[in-house]
Design a binder for these strands. Sequence first.
DNA 1: AATGAATGAGACTTCATTCAT
DNA 2: GATGAATGAAGTCTCATTCAT
Lengths: 211, 211, 211, 211
Amino acid sequence: MSTRDRVRAAAVKLFATKGFHGTGIRDLAQEAELSSASLYHYMGTKEDLLAEIMHTALNRLLDAAREATAGGGDPVHRLRTLVALHVLAHAVGPAETRVVDNEVDVLSPAAREPVVALRDAYERLWAAAIDEGVTAGVFRVEHPAVTRLALLEMCSGVARWYSPRGPLALDELAEHYAELASRALGCTSAPGVTDLRRCREIVAKEWGVSV
Amino acid sequence: MSTRDRVRAAAVKLFATKGFHGTGIRDLAQEAELSSASLYHYMGTKEDLLAEIMHTALNRLLDAAREATAGGGDPVHRLRTLVALHVLAHAVGPAETRVVDNEVDVLSPAAREPVVALRDAYERLWAAAIDEGVTAGVFRVEHPAVTRLALLEMCSGVARWYSPRGPLALDELAEHYAELASRALGCTSAPGVTDLRRCREIVAKEWGVSV
Amino acid sequence: MSTRDRVRAAAVKLFATKGFHGTGIRDLAQEAELSSASLYHYMGTKEDLLAEIMHTALNRLLDAAREATAGGGDPVHRLRTLVALHVLAHAVGPAETRVVDNEVDVLSPAAREPVVALRDAYERLWAAAIDEGVTAGVFRVEHPAVTRLALLEMCSGVARWYSPRGPLALDELAEHYAELASRALGCTSAPGVTDLRRCREIVAKEWGVSV
Amino acid sequence: MSTRDRVRAAAVKLFATKGFHGTGIRDLAQEAELSSASLYHYMGTKEDLLAEIMHTALNRLLDAAREATAGGGDPVHRLRTLVALHVLAHAVGPAETRVVDNEVDVLSPAAREPVVALRDAYERLWAAAIDEGVTAGVFRVEHPAVTRLALLEMCSGVARWYSPRGPLALDELAEHYAELASRALGCTSAPGVTDLRRCREIVAKEWGVSV
DNA sequence: AATGAATGAGACTTCATTCAT
DNA sequence: GATGAATGAAGTCTCATTCAT
């Protein structure tokens, strides 16, 4: 693990735990086992570091989602895949995702803009799946846009409480959330099956962890 | 509006927007239109102020939920009521609820403990409704505890995006979330009806706003 | 006890315990059971209060010493009387005397000057007794001026440790110190006798305590 | 002189002159020719700095006293040595000793405890010499414990007034105080001789000054 | 007589960052 | 590549004091 990665990992951990403003340069240095002056060989400002973390995390999630839903196909299947992927990502990297979800507002407008653009691109994948499903009549739900937000919040929440040491395995977790989402969307098709193997492969590749 | 309330309101707004650590004493003073020294006539430390906000908000939510579900009765109806109330509370007081949801960890252990106790008491109301529904067979869901967390996160998320200036009225919002939750829980009973009037009354009373 | 006296007593106690700079206006108010604003009905500035305490205390000591040594007479007897009186004063009012001894330097030059003048006048009584004793040959000591300072410090120190709840009664204490001083001065006359009754009367009158 | 020593020296000077609470961080910074932020590279809190000064000073005095009285021997001689050493220490380092003598009470209980322990250990050396002398019959004094306190205060007072620019040389000062103490203790042996050379050597070594 | 409210100034301390070594 | 030293700005909070009521 390179020093640069140690710094990034320290920042992810501390920003997630104590928040951006609650984390001092000295905290970062201590966690990364560096002097605070040395830190500046591996980062720009503290805000740059945060922005970089967000870019990395969001690009990874976006790439994963695009890969997983490439080729279009059945909206139900796509939505379940997006949910499973999202949940896995949040369960596997809760710190990273919490930073992305909670600290966007501390960025200056200039730094925030591209981050929000990434997030929007990602959410469009969800919106497309849902809208197509509604159009196709496989989803029956009143307010699709609101429902999308509701499901996203529901899935993102995983990062706040899931523990791999708990009773639920990652597979079960992802499958359960896919089912919850399907139901919430009033899915009319046969009880869905999620291609969890594919999701696991993608997560393994993008996040570098064995799931 | 008393000066003391102005200070509290300023804190709620800023803590929600910029986070506890991102909010300076000077910011608070400016928002409350006081000198930073005068602030200290109306509060203890900044942390005391945060803890007080959390106590007030959680007690209000807990009281409302207890009142709304008093008398027990049909678990489906209770759960829908809890959802509607939670959503209304988060839509009506997004700043307050965001503070409660996001800033618990900045409290010192001593100050955090009673706050967590309140939150736990509140979540037990949800757990009871869900568990009874499952036992009664009106909810069919795999992992009730996980589902409870998923639904709570889903509903709390409302505070992050809902705007009264958007296309959705509060009533519709609450009803929609009640429906999403019912579905996610695999509700087998007839399409539920939420007693929104009751919820509105309670919110009006506890939050002092006309809904 | 008048409110004004309560304020003075609070100041004496706190200035002695925590020092002038270590004592806040709020501390004084609390000790005097007044609001900090009300305090200012009974005092000028904090410094004025300190100066007033010092004047009172030093005038009292000076008056007592003058009365006790009025009429001149035997230098040995006078010196023993001064010692006994000084020790009694410091044992009876340790707070007051500690303030006088320790906090002179916090006064502004203008406020300090008359205080130092009082102290000098007092010390001249000691100097006179010692010098006359040396001239008369009843004291045999190398450096009379240095010895005066040494004895004064020795006696003032009583305020730092004496407790009426200890094994030593005030009379014994005073007598013992008179004896120590006599010896240090190389007193050649017969073992001195101190007129403790007279000292006690003066202390009782000036300090308003029964000794 | 290292920066760290400059900070310590500044603190000793200012704490002695203006008291701990009367000395601001800015005063320290100015005296040490540093910015107030830079100060914190060389110290912990202001209280830490005070505690450290006290430890250093008391350890020095205790070491010196132990070395000077090592081997026990004649109580009279030991007591005279302790007095001479104490006086020299207070004449050579009046600022340091004034801080130790006057500011103990500002320390928090946790920080005060070890300081008081050091002071007690030091005073036990005096107590032992006096008690042994009384037992051996070379001291004839009524209240040995009280007398010890009286003599300590007398000697410590030197720090409050002695000036090397005055008429008295250090040697004479020390010898004179040894004589005063001997007399006060009712010393029955032949006029004592203090081993001033030894004391001077120890002071020179421990305090790093040529006496 | 009494005090709640108010505040400018200043308390101690930490902040993120730079730079010479 | 690494860091001790340095600092202006800012952090939270308390200071002594005034004044309208």
